[in-house]
Design a protein around this nucleic acid. Structure first.
Length: 296
DNA sequence: CTCCAGGTTCCGG
DNA sequence: CCGGAACATGGA
């Protein structure tokens, strides 16, 4: 157990914002999850982060604690919506996830609720994640599984994936894993590519379109100009920035989001996404976010 | 029961 | 390029 001083960071907002799917909140308010091959437990109390992990450097890199959040937020447009989102969820940071885990998770995400995505990812890890280990915590022993490797998924079967509750996404995940395993696509090469090139690369994979590609570029490769437009963001953009306007096509939304939010647009997108999602469906009751959120 | 979910792909204007 | 439909399943 180690105490880390991190300013401008909210563990709750970061892990609650739908970027990663392996985190659970404990009864004590702490979080536990898996980063790479290690089990991690964290808790935030009066400004400090208590970390329980074998490799602290990997944890720090994952949470991007070295990033100066103020400099990023300063580049955002100063409209009322984004300002409100930042004020309410200050400390939310973009994670730096493993590319394969991120890609596979978001292939599983299409037209699924976050609760269900978490369940699918958990199923995949339990059934295909090699190297499960035991961890004792105050007498309790629990099994944890790392996310399965490309090879583990590629050598799996459609039926196994189907039974992980992937539904029609099973075919895509299997085909994508096999393309990567066969070397037809090299994820590691994307890091040095431009955002556009990386997107083009990712979109060749079955089940990966523009939205999922942008999620991987943003959450795993740190391409902060990537701006994923899902149903929440699309509704939000229409209601907050195109209120009462006709003929707002997907093309128009892409152009707007690509220029308006600036060089760290992906960061702005994540603040908006969390803001909209916490406000309730269809983006109503945004004002309620000015008050503290009551957890169900 | 109905509606919707961090979409993608295919098809006809 | 655009809108619609199909694709599976479970949460609200």
């Amino acid at each position: 157990m180690q105490a880390i001083q991190v300013s401008d960071f909210s563990l709750d907002h970061t892990l609650d914002s739908g970027q990663a799917f392996r985190w659970r909140r404990g009864a004590d308010g702490g979080w536990q999850g898996v980063i790479g091959r290690q089990f991690v437990r964290l808790q935030q109390a009066n400004g400090a982060i208590q970390v329980e992990a074998a490799d602290l450097d990997e944890v720090a890199r994952y949470f991007q604690w070295h990033v100066n959040l103020s400099e990023i937020v300063a580049t955002f447009p100063r409209d009322e919506h984004l300002t409100a989102a930042v004020r309410r969820f200050r400390g939310l940071r973009l994670l730096r996830q493993d590319p394969w885990e991120c890609l596979a998770s978001f292939i599983a995400s299409s037209t699924k609720q976050i609760v269900q995505i978490k369940q699918i990812v958990e199923n995949l890890s339990e059934r295909l994640g090699m190297g499960e280990w035991e961890r004792g915590g105050m007498g309790e022993k629990t099994r944890y599984h790392p996310f399965p490797t490309v090879e583990a998924v590629a050598s799996s079967t459609h039926e196994v994936l189907w039974n992980c509750k992937l539904g029609f996404r099973a075919r895509n995940l299997l085909a994508t894993a096999r393309m990567i395993a066969e070397g037809k696509t090299d994820l590691s090469r994307i890091r040095s590519m431009s955002c556009g090139e990386g997107r083009e690369h990712l979109c060749r994979l079955p089940g990966v379109g523009e939205k999922i590609a942008n999620c991987v570029l943003l959450f795993a490769f740190g391409k902060q100009e990537a701006f994923p437009i899902d149903v929440w963001i699309e509704r939000g953009l229409r209601e907050l920035y195109f209120r009462r306007k006709r003929n707002v096509t997907p093309r128009r939304l892409r152009e707007f989001s690509g220029s308006y939010f600036g060089p760290h647009g992906g960061y702005a997108q994540q603040y908006l996404f969390h803001y909209l999602r916490m406000a309730g469906r269809r983006g109503r009751d945004l004002k309620m976010l000015d008050r503290p959120i009551h957890r169900a």
